[in-house]
Simulated scan of single mutants.
Amino acid sequence: MKDVAKNQKTITSRGIKFPHDRMVIPWRQRKLLRNNRYEEKESRAVLQNLRPEDRVIELGAGIGYMSSLMALKVGIRDVHAFEANPRMIPFIENVHAMNDVKGVTIHNAVLGDHAGTAEFYNRRDYVASSLAPLPTDDDQTLLSIEKIEMRDAGDTFRTIAPTALVCDIEGAEVDLLPLCDLSSVRCAIVEMHPQWVGSAGVAKVFATMTQAGLTYHHRGSQGKVVTFRRDW
């Protein structure tokens, strides 16, 4: 476990501590964390639907919130958290260290239709960093373009064989989920992004889940956070 700086300023949310880093957590997110409302709908779905014995793939690890919640509040001991942004990895590791989180493996990688590398656009505004170039990119906004690992989605799911999936990847779910082998998954919690993918994109995600044998679970869904379950 990495050393945790003593006396560092923290924010506590649902009993989980996070470094008070204004460069990583903007003021609005800090307020939501303090009020236990950060990722509120996704958190509720995770707490209602996941089990301690689950093996989880998390797509889009962010600040390490969901992986910490799953480990500390659900008691899951086998989480594979994938995060594309290399700048976030030390922050997530710090969160896990200061909360004594066990059983989470962090992968600085993305999933795709083949194994190889992908370009990650590292911007001064970390929230705007992404796998795609923007028309606004220039010397003032773009810090670097980094090569990150891309793993074959189907192979990754078959190797890990998750029983649960937690996915928040800002619209990329439409193209990525059809590539994943969901045969071992009994529960999938997906945050939809209809503002970017439209109704056709939402329909494609539902069709992917239906084809995999997972059905919409209304009690575990709220707003854009949708839960799919398999009757086992």
Rank of each mutant, 00 (worst) to 15 (best):
E93I: 13
A45I: 10
A200S: 08
Q29C: 02
C187E: 02
Y216G: 00
A81G: 09
G64K: 08
A207K: 12
N94K: 12
E191F: 01
A172K: 13
L179A: 01
I11T: 05
R158Y: 06
H107A: 05
Q8W: 00
Q195N: 11
E149L: 09
K204A: 15
W27Y: 10
E83L: 05
K102D: 14
T163I: 02
S184Y: 00
R219Q: 15
E170F: 05
G112W: 04
F157A: 13
G154N: 10
S199R: 15
G198L: 13
H217F: 15
T156W: 02
M192T: 09
L32Q: 14
V74Q: 14
V127I: 10
N122R: 09
L176C: 06
P26E: 10
A45N: 08
I92V: 10
V4L: 03
A188M: 11
L182Y: 03
L50F: 13
L111D: 13
E58A: 00
P133W: 07
G112Q: 06
F228K: 09
L142V: 02
L134D: 14
I92C: 07
G15P: 02
I106V: 13
R51F: 01
G220L: 03
M88N: 10
Y121Q: 08
D138L: 04
V205S: 12
I148N: 03
R30N: 00
A97I: 06
A45V: 11
H20D: 15
E93W: 03
I189E: 01
L72I: 03
R124F: 07
N99W: 07
L165Y: 06
K41P: 01
N35C: 08
N85H: 12
A164Q: 06
E39T: 11
S129E: 02
A188T: 10
T136M: 09
L143D: 15
L33R: 00
V4K: 05
A132R: 12
T141R: 08
E39M: 13
D138I: 05
W232S: 12
Y65A: 12
I25H: 04
Q8P: 01
I145D: 11
G223Q: 06
D152M: 02
K102I: 13
L179M: 14
R14W: 14
V174F: 11
V185A: 04
R14Y: 11
C180L: 09
V46W: 00
D155G: 11
R51I: 00
R30D: 01
V104R: 03
L33C: 07
L165W: 03
I11Y: 09
E170Q: 15
K102R: 15
P19S: 07
G213C: 06
G223A: 12
I25E: 05
F82M: 03
D152A: 08
A212G: 07
Q8M: 15
D3G: 05
D125L: 13
L33D: 02
H80K: 08
T10E: 11
D113Q: 10
R14I: 06
L143T: 11
L182A: 07
R230S: 09
D175A: 15
R124P: 05
C180T: 06
R230F: 01
F18D: 04
D125G: 03
Y216H: 10
F18G: 06
V174D: 06
V197S: 03
V226K: 07
I106A: 02
E119F: 04
S199C: 08
K2T: 01
Q29I: 00
D175M: 14
